[in-house]
Simulated assay, not measured.
Amino acid sequence: MSNSVVTTAAIEKDDNVIWHQHNVTKAERAQLKSQQPVVLWFTGLSGAGKSTVAGALETELVNQGYHTYLLDGDNVRHGLCRDLGFSQQDRRENIRRVGELTKLMADAGLIVLSAFISPHRAERALVRELLPQGEFLEVFVDASLAVCESRDPKGLYKKARAGEIPNFTGIDSEYEQPEKPEIHLKADEHSVAELVEQCLSVLRAQGVIG
């Protein structure tokens, strides 16, 4: 199928697909859960601790009675994004899909935690634009390349250094650090418990949790 055919089909579909507003509102779903919906977007190098911190934060939130969902980079590639590879185009599409999914989950009134390298500022900005003001919190899990490479929990840096994984972020593909993240976690200087408490403090200050 040519690009022109795909483009035309997409335009025709867009013209005939209309968003349906349901009776139950986002505010009502959030009120039922006694919380404010929000997306915490954890970004950082592989091995920085994104999934570890996000998982520990989710556990603490659930223990306090809040309704959450954690989206992990590897997990979504088993289903939602299983058809995507790791080219620049596919990685952008991966983030676009996840962004749309977080929007729907926030509409359900959830506190959504998304742990993705998401190396480019433009892609993270596109996700931010999907959500209302204040509902997207960029969480920069900041650990140096040396620390991440020394951890290498999946052996990915070793494979990248050996040329087995092309376009690996931090090695032969650029990571663009957030310029003004809502939460900046110095992951190589603090314990997971301290990083979780830092996140909780911001959520309390913004009225997401009590």
Rank of each mutant, 00 (worst) to 15 (best):
L145R: 01
H78G: 14
A106I: 05
A108F: 08
R77Q: 10
G155F: 06
A56S: 12
K154H: 09
D152M: 09
L110Y: 04
D74Q: 12
G155R: 09
D74L: 11
L61N: 01
R124N: 07
E164Y: 02
A162C: 08
A160E: 01
L71P: 02
D107M: 10
E60Y: 03
V98T: 08
S118E: 08
A106Y: 04
Y157Q: 06
K158F: 01
D152N: 08
R97S: 05
Q64R: 14
G85P: 08
T52P: 12
L110N: 07
S87E: 13
A143D: 06
L70S: 08
V76K: 03
L131H: 08
G55Q: 11
S150I: 08
I111N: 00
L113Y: 02
P119E: 11
S114M: 03
Q64V: 07
V76R: 01
S87A: 12
K50V: 01
S118W: 04
L113A: 02
D74V: 10
K159S: 03
N75S: 14
L84R: 00
H78V: 08
K159T: 00
K159M: 06
R82E: 14
R82H: 12
A54Y: 06
L130A: 12
E93H: 07
R161F: 01
G65V: 07
V98P: 04
P132I: 13
E138V: 05
K50D: 00
G65Q: 10
T102R: 00
V147Y: 00
T59Q: 15
V112N: 00
N63L: 13
C148M: 08
G85F: 06
V141W: 10
H120F: 15
E129T: 14
E135Q: 14
R96I: 11
L104V: 13
A160Q: 00
K103A: 15
F86R: 01
A143S: 15
R77E: 13
L84F: 05
H120Y: 15
V139F: 09
L61F: 02
V53D: 06
V141Q: 11
S150A: 15
D107P: 08
R121Q: 14
R128N: 14
D90E: 14
N94P: 07
P132H: 12
A162Q: 12
